[in-house]
Design a protein around this nucleic acid. Structure first.
Lengths: 323, 323
DNA sequence: TCGCATAATGGAAACGCTTACAATGGTTTC
DNA sequence: GAAACCATTGTAAGCGTTTCCATTATGCGA
């Protein structure tokens, strides 16, 4: 590894001058600066992170902390992680993965937390580091989230504008903000259009959604707005079992976009999370906090992506991912 | 942050003694050791990673390097990452995510590489760090992999033992080891049972598999062994379109297990990657290399997981994931 | 009783970098 | 033309830890 000292020796200057060329180039005379820069290029210098961390007590490490159980972990995190890693790399940071609450965070500058519950708030606060959550845990902790209400509002409005009268909402029975927000979006659209409301709340799994269909007396000219793609998939299975045709008889819209890059027999129409924008906003929030300023919460606009579970009177907006 | 010096001051010893209590406790007398340990506990000391890295030039960081394009990234990496993070944390290491070939690895002790091609070998070698790949790139670089041949062998044998005569193999047309190995496993079973062979090679996407079905004259009493779950899903879609019933008329077995935690209308019977064991083996390989010893390659045994695309004469071995 | 080996502890230097301050020399100011 | 200034460069110390060597104390054999 080439160090500042190596460069200094080669350029016949002190290592302070080299350091200045890197950090405060305006303080160095042009000719010396050019000389040092040439030597840096030829020797291929990269600063030693440990030494930097030691003097600046900045580690240039962000941790992505997954608080979910391994079996329930969202597969689209893989994609989010790559967006985060790319952007952080551009900024000179590296991205670290953490799981569970026993993580050691002394060497970390800030945390992006996913899968947390409201009960995790005290834990996150005691870390004493900038934290941003993906999905709100409440006002105590800065967050970035998809605009959940807008998402279900868009989905419901879309269906209503197609002339569908009965929109069933199948929500998640959890005391979390996103569950409430998604319900609110549905109710907002229903109120605006003055149509009957049908709300059902279940746990977020396909089985429960599947079983719900059995107990439902589905009226003609209907559609489902599901709070999650998992629920939507369960509904689809239930509808298939009851020989109810999708989308001819009943439309279904999900939320999240987790099955987007799969061409299953039936692609789900869904409210897609804007993962790239979310990654960017999460990073922005941490950087702002690292500057010592308060971070603003961000609600990002989701996109309605048309699959095969709605009758689309507009063109398929998103091409199939695979070629 | 409490430092060695803080502990030393509080315990009225030099910081060297404290350092020894942590690293070479046998060199410290029992009473001093106990005293220092008590102070460490009460002040809650954790060593400063940067300082450690500076003296030892060991950073206790492992990078998970994803060389795939973001759109083709495997969703099951999320699960693999968590297994890796958990185990590495136990060992005092942290796990970092890298994407693309511009990564800076000076601060990293070793790399776990996924999604690489054979053309990446020179790049990986120039890093000058211990590397292990998930999936073999050839003998030049230590690897851990599922036993691909065994997987397709198990799948094919299982179908043959059910009395199915015509087993179609739909492989991946790529010059990569895994593609060849999976084909070999199929051929091995075919040879052993002296049944007709039907090999087709396509690109690894659902569309191609879907289209393949159209051009195929499928004989009665048949089954498909697909080289990947993606191909299997495409085959299923194609079969559905042609009104061929699965599994009643034709069975299908995939490979990888990427759709395992989804209850789609039809769960795929597949050869599952043993992710937890793979994570462990990847880490073992790096640790061995960090000791300066040569790492042995590992081929791990996959599991046949029964879904709804085979007629199972044995009980469903894996329960549905969601409860 | 003395010398010596051994155990237990401490001090100093080093890892690579930055911050804070000092030194140098040229230029401005009156 | 001397004082003050500024631009440019260098020196020293310190971040938290370890390795290496020095010091002190203890116990043992002769």
């Amino acid at each position: 590894m080439t160090t500042l000292t190596d460069i200094a020796r080669e350029a016949h200057v002190s290592k302070m001058t080299v350091s200045r060329v890197i950090n405060h180039p305006e303080q160095v005379s042009a000719d010396v600066r050019e000389l040092v820069e040439k030597v840096i290029d030829s020797l291929g210098y990269t600063p030693n992170r440990a030494a930097l961390a030691l003097t600046q007590s900045r580690h240039y490490v962000i941790q992505f902390l997954i608080l979910e159980d391994i079996e329930t972990v969202e597969p689209y995190y893989a994609k989010l992680l790559i967006y985060l890693a790319e952007e952080l790399q551009r900024l000179g940071y590296s991205l670290e993965i953490g799981h569970n609450r026993q993580v050691e965070v002394n060497h970390v500058d800030g945390l992006i937390v996913v899968g947390g519950r409201q009960t995790d708030i005290p834990f996150l606060q005691t870390l004493g580091k900038p934290v941003v959550t993906y999905g709100s845990l409440g006002p105590a902790i800065p967050f970035v989230d998809v605009d959940n209400s807008l998402g279900t509002y868009m989905a419901t409005t879309y269906l209503l504008e197609q002339g569908i009268e009965n929109i069933y909402y199948v929500g998640v029975k959890l005391p979390e903000y996103f569950a409430l927000a998604r319900l609110v979006g549905y109710l907002g659209a229903i109120n605006k259009f003055q149509t009957p409301r049908h709300v059902h709340q279940i746990l977020n799994n396909e089985k429960q959604a599947f079983q719900l269909i059995r107990h439902l007396d589905i009226k003609p000219n209907s559609a489902f707005v599901a709070a999650t793609d998992r629920i939507a998939m369960g509904l689809l299975n239930g509808l298939a079992l009851n020989k109810i045709k999708v989308p001819e008889t009943v439309s279904v819209i999900g939320f999240d976009g987790i099955f987007l890059n799969q061409i299953t027999s039936q692609r789900l129409t869904t409210v897609q999370q804007p993962l790239k924008e979310i990654a960017q906003a999460l990073i922005d929030s941490l950087l702002v906090q690292l500057e010592g300023q308060p971070a603003e919460n961000r609600l990002l606009r989701p996109h309605l992506v048309f699959g095969g579970t709605t009758i689309d009177h507009q063109p398929n907006l998103v091409p199939l991912v695979e070629t």
